[in-house]
Design a protein around this nucleic acid. Structure first.
Length: 557
RNA sequence: UGCCGAGUCGUCUAACGGUAGGACAGCGGCCUUUGGAGCCGUAUGCAGAGGUUCGAAUCCUCUCUCGGCAGCCA
């Protein structure tokens, strides 16, 4: 799909730079995830932005794992991140790891020590916290701040070689404890931490902090535009300070507002908790806002890219209506998904005047939006299932479906009339007896008869059984992250998953394979889940169709 | 209370001193063998107050509101 990229303030900056021949007109970006969790749709926004810029301006975009904290990072996450970026449809120019640069960073750290711009601090974590000051009060200088260059160098080498216990010392940039920007109050560059790193193993016992690693990694990669989210805005002075002190290639950091979606949580930490506390079945649970969750649910990469394009990029905080995302999914799937028939809540219908043991082959169009998708044969028989919702014993005037004595068209088949309603002892409707009009067969064009409604159905004889999982928003309130008093867990929607264990599907549907996406006519878009077995295929509802009847019903209440 | 940043329809997003436009959501209608899709129409917005200007969402001043920052996380 051709995604037209709307212009935004970052594109403008880049276009100005190109015009000014900055960096000889070269554009280099990067997507820098920390491999400590799965990617979510917020990352997708960033991925589309960074890779999209590379495409638009004939530049390059790297994938770089920001793996400076071995305590949290795992190879499992690295693998999933690469899979998700590829699935979204992007190819990186190179894969790098911040850990690839540990040696270079170490050399640069010694350079700063030599320049008198960094020192080894023996203060404890508590002491550092206390001396940092507050938002309104300046900090106090560490008593170790004025060590000699040689002493600092010796101690720092000791830190690296494992002479000192974990957390007993840090390397700090020597900047300004009075700075109104707390990030500039002698920020920590290295901490001593004996942890096995997913790539460097036990080679290092000191690890660089984000601020000390990020800009330097960008610089090594000659990133021209280092795009990150708003919470790093206050870090930019420090980002620039390091690069200036080092005198190395200086990328420009640009911040944009991260994505928020209604009824959705977007923090990796909270998503991890949802997984660990079994509120969902895993990172790829179709209710999760993760890339793999959406993938499993049936969303397409195109739909997510379209969404990223539609929502734009700016600096103001935002809360995107989840309907916006769902609309993108519908828009894409409407074009690409084949139509099939499935009945979620079956109500048996016996067509009394239809011959016993007779069947007919009907023709169903696979996709009215795409003639190339062809058609299929659907078998019709005397006993069928229709949707319980498509029958109403005492209908309102606006109800266009089946009711006692009324007529409705069966999609691709005949017009039937409800002759008799059969109920059980509890008074529930369990079966309908209908008659069909042989002159109304679909496609013949011979019948002058018009009916207002057309409903879907599945042959009782030829249909198959299926499990269908209906997903709804995971949270009951628009901004679960914004809950002040109380727990976001309280806002979890207890009905976010409804399992239909015995849905009836037309035979062609049972031939679908995992990942296939189809439209169940009049119901929504569904995707075959990986839990499917040879005996039972499982469908996930990606998104329902727009339901104007539901709207009418709602209004009448 | 310090610093940084942001305020445009309900929600997003455009406008670069010259008619406030688009998308989603809403509403009304058309069409329809999916109450789908599509099509048409429609309401709602420049945080406030001053100023500069022939003309301000845009430039200036003040005010208000919201967000971020006090991890050896990123």
């Amino acid at each position: 799909m051709q995604v037209e990229r709307a212009s935004n303030f970052i594109h403008e900056i880049i276009e100005d730079d190109i015009k000014a021949n900055k960096h000889n007109g070269i554009v280099q970006t990067r997507f820098p995830p920390e491999p400590n969790g799965y990617l979510h749709i917020g990352h997708a926004k960033s991925i589309c932005l960074n890779f999209g810029i590379a495409q638009k301006y004939s530049g390059k975009c790297n994938l770089r794992f920001d793996d400076t904290n071995p305590a949290k990072e795992e190879t499992e996450y690295v693998d999933s991140i690469m899979e998700d970026v590829r699935w979204l449809g992007f190819n990186w120019d190179a894969v790098y790891y911040a850990s690839d640069y540990f040696d270079q960073m170490y050399i640069w750290a010694e350079q700063l020590i030599l320049q008198g711009d960094a020192f080894v601090d023996d203060s404890t974590g508590e002491e550092i916290r206390l001396s940092r000051g507050t938002l309104t009060e300046p900090g106090k200088e560490s008593p170790y701040r004025n060590r000699t260059i040689n002493e600092n160098l010796e101690l720092f080498r000791g830190m690296r070689s494992g002479t000192f216990p974990d957390s007993s010392k840090t390397l700090r940039a020597k900047i300004d404890m009075n700075s109104p920007n707390i990030n500039m109050r002698d920020p920590i560059m290295y901490r001593i931490l004996r942890a096995n790193h997913h790539r460097t193993g036990d080679k290092w016992c000191i690890y660089p902090m984000y601020d000390w690693a990020h800009g330097e990694s960008d610089s090594i990669e000659k990133v021209t535009h280092s795009i990150c989210t708003l919470e790093f805005e206050n870090h930019r002075p420090l980002y620039d300070w390091f690069l200036e002190k080092l005198g190395i290639f200086h990328p420009r950091q640009i911040e944009f507002a991260r994505l928020n979606i209604t009824y959705t949580l977007m923090s990796k930490r909270k998503l991890l908790e949802l997984v660990n506390e079994n509120y969902v079945t895993g990172w790829d649970d179709p209710r999760m806002p993760t890339i793999c969750g959406y993938r499993r649910r049936g969303y397409t990469p195109e739909s997510i890219r379209l969404f990223a394009d539609r929502i734009g990029v700016a600096k103001r905080d935002n809360m995107i209506d989840v309907a916006q995302l769902e609309n993108c999914v519908r828009e894409d799937l409407n074009k690409s998904a084949n139509r099939m028939m499935a009945v979620l809540n079956p109500l048996k219908v016996v067509i009394e005047n239809y011959a016993d043991n007779f069947t007919e082959n009907l023709n169903g169009v696979n996709n009215p939006e795409d003639a190339a998708k062809g058609s299929r044969t659907i078998k019709f028989s005397k006993e069928i299932y229709i949707e319980q919702d498509d029958f109403m014993e005492n209908p309102s005037k606006q109800f266009h479906r089946l009711a006692p004595g009324t007529e409705v068209r069966l999609r691709y088949a005949y017009i039937i009339k409800c002759e008799k309603v059969i109920k059980n002892e509890q008074g529930e409707v369990i079966e309908l007896r209908c008659s069909y009009d042989i002159d109304t067969k679909s496609g013949t064009g011979t019948s002058p008869k018009k009916v207002k409604g057309t409903i879907h159905w599945v042959s009782a004889e030829f249909g198959k059984s299926s499990e269908v999982r209906l997903y709804d928003r995971l949270f009951t309130i628009e901004d679960p992250a914004g809950i002040k008093d109380g727990n976001w867990r309280d806002a979890i929607n207890p009905h976010s998953l409804v399992v239909v264990s015995d849905a009836k599907i037309e035979p062609a549907l049972s031939e679908c394979v995992v990942g296939d996406r189809v439209q169940f006519e009049r119901l929504g878009y569904f995707a075959v889940d990986k839990d499917s077995t040879a005996d039972k295929i499982v469908f996930n509802r990606a998104v329902s169709l727009r339901d104007s009847w539901a709207k009418i019903e709602k209004k009448n209440k």
